[in-house]
Design a binder for these strands. Structure first.
Lengths: 104, 104
DNA sequence: CGGACACATAAGCACGTACTTATGCGATTC
DNA sequence: GAATCGCATAAGTACGTGCTTATGTGTCCG
């Protein structure tokens, strides 16, 4: 049950902050820590959780490890959300934006 | 931070099961318990969490309390997801379905 | 080779979470 | 109005989670 992984991963505000930072641009673990007041092991552990939830992916570059958003993870969330489309109120602006960018 | 609430609410598999059951049709707390092996207080506590996350809403009917999916909660998730639309791979089938049903 | 660096992992601990049993509270029924 | 029903809440407990400090692993550089 993969849903379990990404919902649990995103349940932590620190991990969401990390994820959002990565969404603004891929970077390595040290760069992620800048301006975040989080220890190195804590960051490493959070990244491990996000990794196993398929929300981010790593790529070793020398002695750095570059992290980036994994589109597959977002697709899984969208997939989960799609199950409940019967309940989406059509009028909601955010949803309009959402479909506009996806269509084409 | 409302995101915190719904991600934490959905992080629990039992609560997701309850939510999915409600998505199939609104019902009261006792009906929700059927076929679920969960105690009455546990169900009540889970519903309280889902309620405060705006994922479900209640409506008292005599001595029953009817629960139903709250579309606003789903809209908030969609809103959160929309922030990362730059990362959605266009080809993913689930997303196609999603946009097809939203555009109309 | 040896040290420094970037990151991961291990172990321990404080706190949160999901359950239990017990009880309370409003609404119905007789 | 007393018993019962549907549900909520209280209090206690076992377990999970996120942090810490300490140490390990792989890479670069002198």
């Amino acid at each position: 049950m993969i849903e379990n992984d990404f919902f649990r991963a995103l349940a932590d505000p620190t991990r969401r902050a990390i994820f959002e930072k990565l969404a603004a641009g891929s970077m390595n673990a040290s760069a992620l820590r800048e301006g975040m007041e989080i220890s190195q092991p804590a960051m490493s552990q959070h990244l491990a959780v996000l990794r196993s939830a398929k929300l981010v992916r790593e790529e070793r570059q020398g002695r750095f490890v570059n992290y980036e958003v994994n589109p597959d993870g977002l697709a899984l969330i969208a997939q989960w959300l799609a199950k409940y489309r019967a309940y989406w109120p059509e009028r909601i602006a955010a949803l309009k934006v959402l479909l506009k960018d996806m269509d084409q």
